[in-house]
Simulated assay, not measured.
Amino acid sequence: MSMPEAKPIQYEYLDHTADVQLHAWGDTFPEAVSQLVRAFYGYHTEDVKLIDVDYSMDIAASGHDRESMIHTLLEECLYLFETDPFFIAKEVEIVDYKQAGNSIIIRGWGESFDKHKHPGGTAVKAITYSSMQIHDNIEGKVHIYVIVDI
Score class of each variant (00 low, 15 high):
residue 52 D to V: 09
residue 104 I to H: 01
residue 59 I to A: 04
residue 88 I to R: 05
residue 54 D to P: 05
residue 83 T to A: 02
residue 96 D to H: 11
residue 42 G to I: 00
residue 77 C to G: 09
residue 87 F to Y: 00
residue 68 S to F: 03
residue 94 I to C: 11
residue 65 D to H: 00
residue 56 S to H: 10
residue 51 I to A: 08
residue 69 M to G: 06
residue 47 D to A: 12
residue 91 E to D: 12
residue 67 E to G: 04
residue 55 Y to W: 13
residue 93 E to N: 13
residue 58 D to A: 05
residue 92 V to A: 00
residue 79 Y to R: 09
residue 48 V to Y: 07
residue 68 S to Y: 08
residue 97 Y to E: 08
residue 45 T to C: 11
residue 99 Q to I: 10
residue 55 Y to M: 04
residue 60 A to Q: 13
residue 55 Y to R: 10
residue 61 A to N: 09
residue 71 H to F: 12
residue 45 T to V: 07
residue 105 I to W: 03
residue 103 S to G: 03
residue 105 I to K: 13
residue 72 T to M: 07
residue 70 I to F: 01
residue 52 D to Y: 07
residue 96 D to S: 13
residue 74 L to A: 06
residue 84 D to F: 07
residue 96 D to K: 12
residue 98 K to M: 11
residue 99 Q to L: 10
residue 92 V to R: 01
residue 52 D to L: 09
residue 78 L to M: 13
residue 89 A to S: 11
residue 51 I to Y: 05
residue 46 E to T: 14
residue 63 G to P: 12
residue 88 I to V: 08
residue 72 T to H: 14
residue 80 L to E: 15
residue 53 V to L: 03
residue 76 E to P: 12
residue 82 E to V: 05
residue 66 R to N: 08
residue 57 M to N: 02
residue 81 F to R: 06
residue 63 G to A: 01
residue 56 S to R: 10
residue 61 A to I: 03
residue 52 D to N: 14
residue 53 V to I: 13
residue 103 S to L: 14
residue 102 N to V: 04
residue 73 L to C: 07
residue 42 G to W: 01
residue 87 F to E: 02
residue 99 Q to H: 13
residue 101 G to E: 15
residue 79 Y to D: 09
residue 96 D to M: 05
residue 93 E to Y: 04
residue 89 A to M: 02
residue 64 H to W: 06
residue 47 D to Q: 12
residue 101 G to Q: 15
residue 82 E to D: 14
residue 83 T to L: 03
residue 95 V to I: 14
residue 62 S to N: 13
residue 43 Y to R: 15
residue 90 K to A: 01
residue 76 E to F: 02
residue 88 I to W: 02
residue 76 E to D: 08
residue 104 I to T: 11
residue 50 L to Q: 14
residue 56 S to A: 04
residue 79 Y to G: 04
